[in-house]
Computed example of a mutant assay.
Amino acid sequence: MPQAINTEIKPFSATAFKQGEFVEITEADVKGKWAVFFFYPADFTFVCPTELGDVADKYEELQKLGVEVFSVSTDTHFTHKAWHSSSDTIGKINYYMVGDQSGNITNNFGVMREGAGLADRATFLIDPDGVIQAMEITAEGIGRDADDLLRKVKAAQYVRNHPGEVCPAKWKEGEATLTPSLDLVGKI
């Protein structure tokens, strides 16, 4: 069962590949900033590179919003480097590619496929307090959309910065929000 919304991420330690180097990361690297944990089944596959490439295309915009991206699979950081070196799509990635061969992080988030040793296709949006604000899990053949992820990040940041307001369905930056109240009940 996946970790619930509004729960804090659990401690972890891992090696990641980022911009040509291997780096050690822990949950301390996540706290104090917005973060996206982008789980996927495996390197050198089919849907996964399309998703990772899509996020890579939005990485600069996510960075401008103060968001760090951590892609996670149960492959090793060495495999991530090999994939990064051999694929044009993966080669454009500048965010963390986390090796979770122990499955610790994947299990912490509750997205390990039982008996398979692979992560589900899952996305978690973490606020600066280390608390999960949004999550999405899809079946093997259903790829995710980085534009929708970006929209969710902006909505989560808006709600955090504007207590008492909420973002309706399909909300986009600059559009009207709602202020829940007794007067609004039954009028939407």
Rank of each mutant, 00 (worst) to 15 (best):
M1F: 08
Q3K: 05
Q3M: 15
I5D: 01
K10T: 14
K10D: 01
S13R: 06
A14Q: 08
T15N: 11
A16D: 06
K18D: 01
Q19S: 15
E21Y: 03
F22R: 02
V30Y: 02
G32Q: 06
K33E: 06
W34P: 00
V36D: 03
F46D: 00
G53Y: 02
V55F: 11
K58Y: 10
G66P: 01
E68H: 11
F70L: 02
V72A: 06
S73D: 05
D75H: 10
D75Y: 07
T79W: 01
K81V: 09
K81P: 01
H84W: 07
S85E: 15
S86E: 11
S87F: 04
S87G: 07
S87K: 09
I90Q: 08
G91Q: 12
G91H: 09
I93W: 01
N94H: 08
Y95M: 10
V98P: 13
G103S: 08
N107Y: 02
G110C: 14
V111T: 02
V111M: 09
V111C: 07
M112F: 01
E114L: 14
E114K: 13
A116W: 07
A116V: 14
L118A: 02
L118W: 10
A119P: 13
A119T: 13
D120Y: 09
R121D: 00
A122L: 13
I126R: 06
P128H: 14
P128V: 15
G130Y: 05
V131T: 12
Q133T: 11
A134E: 14
A134Q: 15
E136P: 04
E136K: 15
A139Y: 10
A139H: 09
A139I: 15
E140M: 15
G143Q: 07
R144P: 14
R144C: 10
A146C: 05
A146K: 02
A146N: 01
D148M: 11
R151Y: 02
R151H: 01
K152F: 06
K152C: 03
A156W: 13
Y158R: 04
V159P: 00
V159T: 11
R160V: 12
P163C: 05
G164L: 15
A169S: 09
K170L: 11
K170I: 09
K170F: 09
W171T: 04
E173Q: 12
E175Y: 03
L178P: 00
T179P: 00
S181R: 03
L184Y: 08
V185C: 03
